[in-house]
Amino acid sequence: MSVISNLMEMPGMVAAGEFSFRGDRYTYQGNMSEEMARMASIMCRSTSMGTHMEADMLGTFCTQDCGLVPGKGWAVRGPAFSVCVVHNVFCFMDNTKADFNKVLHYMHDELAHSSDDLI
């Protein structure tokens, strides 16, 4: 099973998908319209490029091995929903039903060793 399918098996998952760093391709599963998934992939790609650059900048300030570098992903939390992205995989989850820890650890374990090239 793919990471996205596995994410969709987790409780509280609203939608999960994958975007490309170049171009506007994306795939997704879940309770979201095609247009919403397109918007989500544009937003997630944008923030991921930013955090990637910012983590690289942080690396120039750290003296030796800084565990925040290279940047691997990010998450934001709203009152009802959270979004998490690691590498080029995104997911939207319902805060009341999802296990935030389980999702973030799973995504990091599965995706953090992906290439840092934003292609």
Partner: peptide
């Protein structure tokens, strides 16, 4: 997102997490 899709529950943003290779 909320104004275009009508799907609320994201604003106001409560928190942000930056995940690095070994630390968050």
């Amino acid at each position: 997102w909320e104004s275009l899709t009508g799907m609320g529950g994201f604003y106001p943003i409560g928190g942000f997490t930056l995940m690095g290779m070994d630390w968050s």
